[in-house]
Amino acid sequence: MMEVSIGGIIGLYGGMLFGVLGWWFGRKKAKENRGLDELYYHIWQKARSYAWYVTLGAIYVFFSLIMFGVELSTAMVLGILLLAHVGSWGMIGIIMSVNMTSTAPLQPSRVKIGISVIVFTIVSILTNNWLFLLVSIPPNLIGLITALIPNRKYSEE
C-alpha cells in the first residue's frame, strides 16, 4: 500500500477549502453590486470553455511525453492538469472581465506567459522537482498584473 502523504492531504483539502471560501466570498461581494448578472455568467462560462482547450492541450503534451519515454508520476500529472485547468479558467476570466470594461483592450503578451509556463513545466519535469512549477507562478502573475494596470482607466463621460 502507498504511503499516506499528510502534506498532500492538507494541501489538497486546505486548497479546496480556501478555494471554496474565496469563491463564496467573491460571489457575496459581487451580489452586493448586482454583479451576478448575465455578463458575469457569459464571461465565466466562456472562460471555462477556453480552459477546457488549455486542459486538452496539456493532456496531449503529457501523452506525448509518455510516448517519448518520459516517466511521469500520477500526482505530478494530475497536479499540473488541475493547475492548467483552474489557472487558465481564472486568468482567462479576469482578462475577459477587464476587456469588457476597459477602453483599450487588454493584450498581455501571450507568447511571454506561454513560454514562461512551458519552460518552467519542462524544467520541473526534467529535474523531477515540483518547486520549479510553483516558481513560475509569481513571474506570470506579475506579468499579468503589469499588463492589467495601464488599461484599467475608464472615465465616465
Binding site: R34, G35, E38, L39, N99, E156
Partner: peptide, 27 residues
C-alpha cells in the same frame, strides 16, 4: 449615470459599460 441605469435594470455598472461600448450584446 451608468450607475443609475444599472440599478434601474438590475445589472452591474460593468455590464452597462460593456453594452454601451458594444462589447457585449444583452439578452
Amino acid at each position: 449615470t451608468q450607475e443609475e441605469l444599472s440599478k434601474q435594470v438590475g445589472v452591474s455598472r460593468q455590464s452597462i459599460i460593456a453594452i454601451e461600448s458594444g462589447k457585449f450584446n444583452p439578452s
